[in-house]
Design a protein around this nucleic acid. Structure first.
Lengths: 154, 154
DNA sequence: GGCGTTATACTCGGATACCACGTGTCCGAGTACCCCCGG
DNA sequence: CCGGGGGTACTCGGACACGTGGTATCCGAGTATAACGCC
């Protein structure tokens, strides 16, 4: 079980975008330079955030990305789910009802206990990620980093 | 982010093995018939459980697998970690210190806040899985399933 | 009849191909800006 | 000097190859069993 490496890119990129002055935008090329990652591939990931309604993208000169809503209402879970999908990593294929030892349907009125445990764990993971907003991340950045970003974005 | 499909196999197989009479064993071939999954591949996964110290495997006729310790002391996390590894799905590559906008080392005295959030979420997932033991799963099985397994294992 | 030896059949364990998803790249459609020209 | 039109350059968005890890399979090493022959 592993998240795409681009998850980290998207999280850091969103943190930078959140520091933009109101109305300003930043391009994928600028961000790729900022982080030292492949530009076109980063652009591909940011497009996912646009499709998820987290960012809005504008084309043309002075175009780029900006947040679609205030950072207080963007959770880390929103970002991770946008780039990786919201599906549960464990999928129950009803193994108990297959093969020679298949359980009879009348014994399967309750959902599979193992699937329930895995689902609860995933829910705990989601809760933990949704408890932190992008604004919380930005608020915790060291002053030096904020200054550096301000210079980039200004 | 997704778990190997074999995670489900291992969880169900462990639940069956936990119902074995004391001292008895069950072979990978029996289990693969029971669940309708490829035998050699299942054997490969069970070998991981042996390496993790959850099962013990004996060769020869009447050989097979049995639990290495009581099911109360085997958590779902133990099983999942054995088959998928215990690594955090999110790996922090210190993106903040790379590229043109790299933060200075003196601004990175604190660990990356994003990595910390992801780590906490993973820890919540692990806690949730470690709270349930194999004995809990077996105790919750319907009576019909237990009977069916008893007939298989007896 | 009891015991040692041998042959056997069955088990796990690791080494070997195949395939899908993430990774990396490219090019095209669309748009706001800027310059130029005319009034 | 001011307004309109066209060209331009820049942006995002989706379509196209490549590599790594999961999936599936096989065969070999090792061992408890069972039969067999001998004492």
């Amino acid at each position: 079980m592993k998240l795409p490496e681009t998850s980290e890119w998207v999280l850091h990129a969103a943190a930078v975008i959140a520091q933009l002055p109101s109305g300003a935008t930043v391009s994928a090329a600028q961000l790729s330079e900022h982080f030292g990652v492949p530009g076109p591939y980063l652009s591909k990931q940011l497009a996912k955030l646009v499709r998820s309604g987290i960012l809005t993208g504008s084309t043309g000169p002075r175009g780029g990305f900006r947040l679609a809503r205030i950072p207080e209402r963007i959770s880390i879970l929103d970002l991770v789910a946008a780039v990786d999908g919201a599906a549960d990593p464990y999928v129950c294929r009803e193994l108990r009802q297959q093969g020679r030892g298949a359980a009879r349907p009348e014994d399967c009125t309750q959902p599979c206990a193992l699937a329930a445990v895995m689902r609860d764990a995933h829910e705990a993971w989601r809760e933990s990620l949704s408890a932190v907003s992008l604004a919380d991340i930005v608020a915790g950045l060291p002053a030096g980093v904020v200054d550096k970003n301000r210079r980039l974005l200004g």
